[in-house]
Design a protein around this nucleic acid. Structure first.
Lengths: 338, 338
DNA sequence: TTGTATGCGTTATCAA
DNA sequence: TTGATAACGCATACAA
């Protein structure tokens, strides 16, 4: 593989001149530029990103911390970001991060020292840790937020419209004729929990003439186990719902389990809907109706924002709302006749 | 950010000596080694992989290709290897790899060119692709195999004793009094499929006085959907089994789904066992009895073998068998009274 | 067992 | 508009 020196020699110029051509320097004569470009062509020259990084100090790697290794959401996000990085010829440095550890600060510092990353992608729930934001800003690390609670000045954000998505899937249930629709919501610490519940409530109020029945809302904290209890209580009550919208797929799976064990057929007796479109939604029978997160686009967009932010340096923060999709599968069907 | 020079200065040695410590050189006094290590600690020093790569051409990164992003086994393996790398102050370059793509060769070459890795971890099913082995050897890339079909000269391997594990979990069912125990096996292309089935058969033959009933064995190809059909057939047959051992957790989940829908209580009417201890085994009700893969140790061992192989250069291949664990949870119980 | 000096491919400084 | 040379952080021939 040819180096910059060989190009310079062939073109009869100095290495610096070749470097100038490479980096689109302004003050350079067209003649030399052409000469250099021809030499590069002839030698099939490609600059070494390693050497460039060595000199300029910032790496091509993008950092990412994750805190819940068994989360289906995180698994799909990891995959998407990884793929986007690979396509953009960048590297991803991912690390498991224990957010409850009091020494988190040292862990992050060690991560930054080790990887030398100057760009990061922050995913839920870390994207909301203002202590972390401060630390990163202190160290001059740029970052992009995925689904943060609120926009942050100086950092770009990527969202989906959680509220609209929740409304859409609830409306789907209403359109199927369901009158009593339960909701199992997430962890109160996440903004997604609030938005998804709001979307559910808004749909009920707008598309039926009923008020929201608070007895039909339970908190499952995004956990399978908690959702089991919620579902058990809801489905054993005298006036049980004919449909349940859970705020994530894992909790919807719990609903399905409980329904099956109580002898309720899904979707004949009970419709079940989830949120996220993680792997588990396909490992159910029937498959789960859910909201598909645009994982692939999230990954691509995150990498793009980082790459642009690096070059443009005009640290204006961009907020991007990506489109979700309602995925109708076998777990939802017409409301049972009364 | 500390450099090797600052470490050398603080430790009162030359940079070369620090370099020796970093690379586990042999001829170095314990005293200086300790002194250097303390200096590294004090300065929170991390070697620049960039500079190292620049100098040597090969990086500290370990490469890994995975082909099934939604596999629970792969998800846990990714996490374990990532964590082991991080603890060993190494990097992991993971890439999604479409094994069915006819241009796989170019994809691997591109991955190697881009990442410059010279060490790789090969996971199932890629660990068995001899074309891939040849390509890697051609390019001088060392690699460690995780659960390969057969040992390969020139590469170390990490295993669990699949056969013994399958035997153990089948014996657990026998000990609970089950007489008719079904088995849903995996993809015929994987050796794990064969070994797990052999373990099942061996247990039946050794611990009961029965021959293996071929009607109680079905191929679920490691897939949820295929397993649904197998379970349906088995559980609707006139003389249905009272226990089913599926060759992975995902298929066991399918068995559970079918059982619940047929009104069979788990574990009162049917015991269900899986294999791998992936996330899904905890997202069931009751939780799944399964064989726990030693993921964490697999990751640590893989990184260790690679690190040692790099320095010692005595390219003798090591085969490591790691211990599995039988995890008894709620999905298995005493056989129903006849 | 340890140290000195050089070079990896690139960009930056300064001078021409 | 160009060029000579230093520097980035590390590893290695060679020397002690």
């Amino acid at each position: 593989m040819a180096t910059i020196n060989e190009v310079a020699e062939l073109a009869n110029v100095s290495v610096k001149t070749v470097s100038r051509v490479l980096n689109n320097y302004e003050h350079i004569s067209e003649k030399t530029r052409k000469k250099v470009q021809e030499a590069m062509e002839a030698l099939n020259y490609a600059p070494s990103s390693i050497a460039r990084q060595m000199r300029t100090g910032d790496s091509l790697s993008i950092g990412m911390l994750y805190s819940d290794p068994s989360s289906g959401y995180q698994a799909r996000l990891n995959h998407a970001v990884l793929k986007a990085c690979s396509d953009a010829r960048r590297y991803l440095a991912v690390e498991y991060f224990d957010e409850t550890n009091s020494k988190w600060r040292q862990q992050v510092e060690a991560f930054l020292d080790r990887t030398k990353v100057t760009n990061m992608i922050l995913v839920p729930p870390m994207c909301d840790a203002s202590d972390l934001h401060h630390l990163l800003k202190e160290r001059g690390v740029h970052f992009v937020l995925i689904s943060p609670s609120s926009p942050l000045s100086g950092a770009s954000s990527i969202y989906i419209d959680e509220r609209a998505a929740a409304m859409e899937i609830t409306k789907h249930l209403i359109d199927l004729g369901h009158k009593r629709i339960g909701h199992i919501s997430g962890d109160e610490g996440h903004v997604a929990t609030l938005l998804r519940r709001q979307g559910y409530q808004a749909a009920i109020e707008r598309y039926t003439n009923q008020d929201v029945d608070e007895d039909l809302i339970a908190s499952g904290r995004f956990k399978f186990k908690d959702a089991l209890q919620c579902a058990d209580r809801m489905l054993q009550s005298k006036n049980r719902p004919t449909a349940i919208f859970a705020a994530n797929d894992e909790m919807a799976s719990a609903v399905m389990m409980v329904a099956n064990r109580l002898g309720l057929d899904v979707p004949k007796d009970l419709s079940v809907a989830g949120f996220d479109n993680t792997h588990i939604s396909e490992v159910m029978w029937p498959a789960l109706t859910t909201i598909a997160q645009p994982f692939e686009q999230i990954g691509i967009e995150a990498v793009r924002l980082i790459s642009e932010g690096t070059t443009s340096d005009s640290s204006e923060s961009i907020t991007k709302v990506l489109p979700h999709t309602l995925l109708i599968r076998g777990s939802t069907g017409p409301a049972p006749k009364e």
